[in-house]
Design a protein around this nucleic acid. Sequence first.
DNA 1: GCTAAATATTAGGATTGCCTAAAAATATAT
DNA 2: ATATATTTTTAGGCAATCCTAATATTTAGC
Lengths: 219, 219
Amino acid sequence: MTPMKEDYIKIIFELGGINKKISNKEIALALDVAAGSVTEMISKLVEEKLVVHEPYAGISLTKKGQRYATELVRKHRLWETFLVDKLNYNMADVHPEAEVLEHQTSDRLASSLDNFLGYPKHCPHGGVIPDENGHFDDISHEMLAMAKDNEEVEIERFLDNHELLVYLTDLGLNVEDDIKVIRHDPFEGPIQIVRKTDQKAMAVSYKAAHNIFVRKTNG
Amino acid sequence: MTPMKEDYIKIIFELGGINKKISNKEIALALDVAAGSVTEMISKLVEEKLVVHEPYAGISLTKKGQRYATELVRKHRLWETFLVDKLNYNMADVHPEAEVLEHQTSDRLASSLDNFLGYPKHCPHGGVIPDENGHFDDISHEMLAMAKDNEEVEIERFLDNHELLVYLTDLGLNVEDDIKVIRHDPFEGPIQIVRKTDQKAMAVSYKAAHNIFVRKTNG
DNA sequence: GCTAAATATTAGGATTGCCTAAAAATATAT
DNA sequence: ATATATTTTTAGGCAATCCTAATATTTAGC
Ligand SMILES: [Mn+2]
Ligand SMILES: [Mn+2]
Ligand SMILES: [Mn+2]
Ligand SMILES: [Mn+2]
């Protein structure tokens, strides 16, 4: 496994989870490489039984590919957690550092780090950290944008996008916040919310609200 | 700068410091690559003004090359310190992890790590950690093997060799120990020493004593 | 000082991963 | 249903870094 192969496997996992088929183009876009490079790399990953490829139909991970993907996601998110919790990085800044450290992280290092961090369950963006055996909890795919007026939800996770995270940091909205949706302004206007703990009112842009995933807090 | 170029620069620094000329062969041996590969890489480093090469005479670093070398040594040793101080690694085990992490360490990450570790001056093997500006203290080149009977010295540093470090860990000898040399057994026999703090007597093998560097504690 | 051994360089070739441009396959829109 | 647009694959090349084998140069032994 080279770092590039790991990144291909990881992006297939992140875009498609454990069964959705991903197109050549989606990978090329996400990794910022040419389509021809993707075709070529995928054919190598097929040989190594890490992915399944139906030409012109799509690409998905084998069990073995999933194993590598979750390991890499684990390492990535442990580093992100380290950077925020121990080195006082801002959550918007950790991605590029983790993106390279992940590939140089032995299993021993990952497990020492995990222990040092107190076995965190989530990265600073709310992403699940798989355990040593590749097990991880389900994640929500419910967008804040889709929550109904008056619904009470918990902020579960943010997509790991720099601009989004800077925006949310400025706004003061955090993972694990319990909030109440007040209303959806028309014409793709902001979603108005209130944080229950401190009654702070926030207006979350329509676009951002599509990149924030929530979980109903029942009630 | 690629990771391999960084490793070439670093080994030239470690073998030769800031002025000694290093041979092709020494580099090939240290990095475990073929002599032809070294010639080729050196010619690239010459183009980039990182090293000076007199064919058949030897290779040394330019000022620019020294700058890169000290930066990499700094990152390497900060990681080693992190692994020992925070993740409870044994000093014999840290080298391979640091060897790869060093290449993926931004200046920002290095300085956050430095702060987190409390600005350590030395790595777990007693090697000096250069500061952000590439400055570092002098190091001793006096081998324990050469210390005279009855001389009192402080253990300054160990060469970073796995077997040596395992041996010294078992023996219980540490960097910064203040010791007294008792005697040199003949026929390349061990050097008998006593640690001043706890009067613990130790017999350090002849070979190991050539890889341990000390500083006179005057007295 | 000459010859043999050691060291360094050059030459030719492999691999990995990327690129662009052309060709093939598929999807979409009227 | 065809023409157009999009996506995917193929083909030909390039850069980095390694290797082995052949050649050149320097050093060491007698
Ligand atoms: Mn990565
Ligand atoms: Mn994350
Ligand atoms: Mn290295
Ligand atoms: Mn060290």
